[in-house]
Amino acid sequence: MTQLALVIDLNVCVGCHACVTSCKQWNTSGPAGYMSDDNPYDKDPTGTFFNRVQSFEVGEYPHTETVHFPKSCLHCEDPPCVPVCPTGASYKRPQDGIVLVDYDKCIGCKYCSWACPYGVREVDEHLKVMKKCTLCVDRIYDTALPEAERKPACVMACPTSARLFGDVHDPDSEVSVAIRENGGYQLMPEWGTKPANHYLPRRKTRIQIHDDELLRADNPLKKEGRKPRVVIDEHTLDDVTSW
């Protein structure tokens, strides 16, 4: 069974919000209707987003590190938001594991947002229905697009390739390999929601270099530098060889 998901590399994310804006651009222009904003260019701007980038400071000064943390629906394998929905508007697609909201059925009761521990569902204040990340379901299967572009808008936009997209149930997919080899983890594992999206942790890339590796003992250039001197009191090759 397929489970599409994002893998987000916190080691690479620079917090530029390109995924946020490209997500909003793609999804507000889509057939599912706009994502409403209030006061976009004014005091107290607010609006509906599927994706947010947050920043956290880890450690104590001066030993701190800033972790940029993109957050969107994790497409949980056991999504607590789905069974609570009274209308069936929230559902998980069996064919690819994407969790979606049917905007034509949703009554805007907000119960599903209470039942998501990650705070990734947002009510659209004007369309009055619940909205959340769709993994660009209207994009990834669009055969009118070139194959390389059949990816979520955020993945396409990320300038540092911090976002990978693929099937986490296929052990050989790019995302599964990344999770396996780079210590990919899930958010709030304590609730048993089994998020499909994974995060790759901060990793220190260091190489061990010893002095003798910087100063190569067997450097052929250096060898040539110490030119062999002619030892007079020894026989030369010419002396011992009979031509």
Binding site: T46, T48, F56, E57, E60, V67, V123, L187, R202
Partner: peptide, 24 residues
């Protein structure tokens, strides 16, 4: 710590990614 998956005793948020409030 479990929310962002970083195992460090001191974590503080410096930005929630929006300024004028949201549904959340």
């Amino acid at each position: 710590q479990t929310a962002i998956g970083v195992r460090h005793a001191t974590i503080a948020q410096s930005s929630q990614g929006l300024m004028g409030g949201s549904f959340n």
